[in-house]
Every structure is written in C-alpha cells, then in structure tokens.
Design a protein around this nucleic acid. Sequence first.
DNA 1: GCGCATCCGGAGACCTTCTCCATATGCTAG
DNA 2: CTAGCATATGGAGAAGGTCTCCGGATGCGC
Lengths: 202, 202
Amino acid sequence: MRKPIRRVSPIGVRCVAEDAVKPMRADARRNRERILTTAREAFAEHGVEVPLDDIARRARVGPGTLYRHFPNRDALVEAVYREEIGALSARAYALVEELPPEEALAAWFREQVGWVRDSSGLAMTLKAAIDRDSETFAFCKKQLREAVAALLEPARAAGAVRANLEPSDLLRLGHGVATACEHADGEGIERLLSVVLAGLRP
Amino acid sequence: MRKPIRRVSPIGVRCVAEDAVKPMRADARRNRERILTTAREAFAEHGVEVPLDDIARRARVGPGTLYRHFPNRDALVEAVYREEIGALSARAYALVEELPPEEALAAWFREQVGWVRDSSGLAMTLKAAIDRDSETFAFCKKQLREAVAALLEPARAAGAVRANLEPSDLLRLGHGVATACEHADGEGIERLLSVVLAGLRP
DNA sequence: GCGCATCCGGAGACCTTCTCCATATGCTAG
DNA sequence: CTAGCATATGGAGAAGGTCTCCGGATGCGC
C-alpha cells in the first residue's frame, strides 16, 4: 500500500525571489507564467482537483513541461496561492505610498474583502487545499501579517485607529466580512465595510 | 474539463441511528463494519488518500462491496469521522453516569487530548479532509458540543468550574493541549493537563 | 551563424476509480 | 427444514488521471 504524497512544499517550488538568483530562459519563464495563470483560472472554475493534463492543454504546454515546473498538484496549488498572497501584500505597500494612512488602510481592507470573494472563493479553496504545516502556509501568513503591519503602524501613529489592533485582527475581520457577505449585494457589502471601518477608529 | 466531486455528504452516508430504521442483513452489516475499521487503520497509517481498492482488499471485500456501502472516498472519510466523534461523545455521557461531575469532566478532557493524539493525529487528518460546509461537519460539531455541555452543566452546578466556560472553550483547549504536546512525553503531557484542569476551577 | 546546454512535449506505462452483471447468500414463509 | 426470492457480493475490465522518458526543438552566448 503506497503512502500518499506528504503535503509539504517540495524544494523545487520556486519563490519569486529565486528568479533573481538564476535567470530563466525566456521561453521557460513564459511557459511557467502561462501555467500559473491557467491553473489559477482552472482552480477558480473547477476546484483544485481539476486534471493537471487539462491545465497543461489549456496552457498550451505538454504535460512534461508542466511537471518540469511543478512536480505535483500540491506544488502548483502552493505556487498559485503564493502569487495571490504576494499580489495582495504588494497592494498594501503600494497603498502606503499613495494615500494617507487611514485611507490606505481602508482601501486595502476593501481589497482584501474583494479578494476573498473573488473568483468564487478561490482564495479559500486554495487555502483549504494547502497543508497547514507547510513552508508555503507559514511564509504566506508571515507575508500578509507584515504587509498589514506596514499599513497599521502609520495609521496608529496618526491616531487614526485604536491602539490595540494587531495585523491578525484585520485579517480575521476581512475574512469574516467576506464570509458574512457571501450572498450580499454591493450595497450590503458597503454597509458592512463602513461599519467595520468605523469600528477601527479610536 | 470535468468538475471534481463536490465535498458534500451524499445522501447514502448512513448514520448509526439509521440502523434502527431498516435492519441490515448480517453479512452486509459485518462487511460495512469491517470496511470502517480497516479504513480507520489505513487512514491512520497512510493518510486519507490511500487507494480505496487497497482498503477493500485489506477488509477482504470486493471493490463493488466497498462502493455499495460508500459511494466515494469522501463518504468513507465522513463515516469514519462520525464514528470517531460518536465514540468520543458517548464517553462523555458514560462518564457523567459513573463519576462525580468534576472528575467526569477531568476524565473526559484527558480522553479528548488522548483522542486527538491517537493514531498519529488521525482525528485532525480526517477533520482536515472534510468539507466545512458538509452535513457531517455540522452534525459532529453539534454532537460534541452537546456531549461537553452534558459534562459542563453538572460541574458548573456543583461549583467545580468557573461559570463562564462554554463547551467550545473546552474543545479548543483540548485541541491546543494536544497540539502543544505533540512531541511531549507522558510526564510533560500530565503537567500540562493538570495546569489546564486547575485553571478550570472557579 | 554555430554549437551546446536547456527546454519542450507527447506517447505510453502505470495506477486508481468505479461499474456491471453473473453468482452467492441471508432470511422468511410454508 | 427446505425452497425461493430479494439482496449482497466481487472482480474483470473500462475509463480517466498521473507522471516519466528521451528524441527533437530552441534560446542564447561566443
């Protein structure tokens, strides 16, 4: 009886930072990015159990190419999740640069709620599929917390939010609002958002 | 591109209570029980992705028989989980009958911690594999809470525990202790247990 | 422009899921 | 106690998915 594949991040899973270490051939990079984009769409439409050969076909690569970049399903799921978390985190740093602290925090919070709701709950689908003990899970959690801290600290310094808020509080609130708004329309979502954002004030 | 099987409890998953409604043939009942026992062992040893034909082979039934009782992997996982939760819950009611309230609560708490640690974390493995929106998940959560309430209420009435404890508090504490004790020996576990149990007192 | 290291891709081996239907058997009625 | 029938079994095999191997393709540096 075979032992199923343990859900840990294989060494082969590349982080974005790794690209800086060893330049990838242009065709290899293009294929990898196309695979990730296609996988994201396929996971959103059909769940994480969609056949990998189907993803390869949609991405117009051979199965050998897909498996060369991502040795198994878990690796692909984790890579897509890392991209999702990376993009959401990057938004925090961008908003800090563009807006006053309170507005930046509010804008990011709205984006987080939108992100959780996006593509029929892709974020939660991916998160549920990832081993809680994996490097990817720990890495993403840390990344998000640091991004939210980058928003919270200026807002706190400006006296715009209550002093006892932690980054994890905001993340839980965002998840809660998104879940509560599962069947809400735009106005309903906006009401809940304004309630929560008002509640953040000192 | 095919849509993967949605993780919801199929109607065909039998609850223990159903057996009272429609008597099963003796050979069918024996087979079903043997499949469940074997599945529990296989999931503990190899995870929930162990091939179902292997479980059938170990249980000495044909694949057709296994699929007659459990239409797919999720049904089997949920059935095993229901049995686990059923047994743990039943212990609460039994202990209430056998012991004074405070001792019953302490004894059950120890059993819960032991249960979480049992068979290399089988309980968590199964729980992680079950859809959070499923009937099984909701049913088991309710069952556990009611069982713990049956322990808490007499203990509270006897003044043996602080008044503000909820069943879910105890369940979370048990999970936390089991997790904290992942690599602890018997003495270490006992120390943590005694700390937490002392903390329950008013 | 050439050469070489790297990348690609897809046929096919292997594994798992799951069904169909001929055979087996539990259990009730006579 | 036996026969008959409704229910249960089981396993060969069809179908689908995973994943590898290696000949051919191509990016890129010199």
